[in-house]
Nucleic acid binder design. Structure first.
Length: 293
DNA sequence: CACTTGACCTGTCCGC
DNA sequence: TGCGGACAGGTCAAGT
């Protein structure tokens, strides 16, 4: 689920909801979801206050005033849901969570001193939470290898072209899903942007013209920004920090729309498999370009 | 190094 | 209603 727009939506919500709150107690289930919890939670988390909430790629960072940070990856089914000491009222979805959390998917619970809580839920257990010194985050190998943020103001079409030059022989879809090429794109927005740029997802990178790469650059920024505006995509599990669903799927042009008409030409959208992922294309407008022999 | 595939988990849906 | 298999937003390690 959570790709850049979903993680950014969660970040913004958490920033609004948990900044300056003090951590009173932390519960966690298995070491898998929170590997170094046992050693460090009592020393660096309990009693600390939340200083900032940041995002890089699909990763969230909650900075504490102990100069330690929680690093969180939601992977496929992770959620970070805040339940306050006061209800939101007027049928707000958060209110129904008051009695329903924690549930069987809750892996970590952070109790704040005012009685509010932050739940890390993750049905499939792929996600994780780690605690480490804030200054060590950027030293992580994983972090150092990340490509640029595609929605950054200074990220240009030329930058995209340059990043793609090291993945010439793979499919364009595999290339933009590669977090070391660009950071934050996942299966939904890859399909959406490739449709926007009229590129078949299986096309080898080296066969795509500079003009088309520029289109792709523009479409990536468009769909990611539009989705942030819509609060992300709720394909299945995703909810934001208040437990609300995102509405981008109402605006999706191809993703999960097989057998429905292409919004541009009316041709039936088909589903294929590219780079090991379910992939949606308009078969008329996204022709597979192959090298001449 | 570039590239592909299967593994990690739980839940759901679809065909028999 | 039950059962087996495919599939689901994302990385990783291990293979070619």
């Amino acid at each position: 689920m959570p790709e850049l727009p979903e993680v950014e939506t969660v970040r913004a919500g958490l920033h609004r909801l948990i900044l300056h709150r003090t951590i009173a107690r932390v519960e966690y289930d298995t070491p898998k979801s929170f590997p170094n919890a046992k050693a460090d939670v009592d020393v660096y988390m309990v009693g600390s206050t939340v200083k900032d909430v940041r995002r890089r790629a699909k990763v969230l960072m909650i900075d504490l005033n102990t100069d330690y940070s929680l690093i969180i990856h939601l992977k496929m089914t992770g959620q970070l849901v805040f339940v306050g000491e006061q209800r939101f009222g007027a049928g707000h979805p958060n209110d129904s969570l008051v009695g329903s959390l924690p549930d069987r998917s809750t892996r970590v619970t952070i109790h704040f001193s005012d009685g509010s809580r932050l739940y890390f839920n993750d049905q499939r257990k792929f996600g994780w939470v780690r605690l480490l010194p804030t200054i060590q985050i950027e030293e992580l190998d994983f972090f150092k290898k990340l490509g640029p943020e595609p929605i950054a103001a200074d990220f240009t079409a030329t930058d995209l072209q340059g990043r793609l030059s090291r993945r010439k022989r793979t499919s364009i879809k595999a290339a933009i899903l590669d977090q070391t090429v660009i950071a934050g794109v996942g299966n939904i927005y890859a399909d959406e942007a490739l449709w926007g740029a009229k590129i078949h997802p299986a096309t080898r990178v080296e066969l795509i013209s500079a003009a088309r790469i520029k289109e792709l650059w523009s479409e990536l920024r468009y769909v990611l920004n539009l989705s942030i505006e819509k609060g992300g995509s709720t394909n299945k599990n995703y909810v934001d920090a208040e437990g609300k669903k995102g509405s981008y799927m109402d605006f999706a042009r191809v993703f999960r729309r097989e057998k429905l008409p292409c919004p541009r030409c009316g041709t039936e959208i088909i589903k294929l498999r590219v780079a090991g992922r379910g992939t949606h294309v308009c078969p008329k407008e996204q022709k597979l370009k192959v090298a001449r022999t």
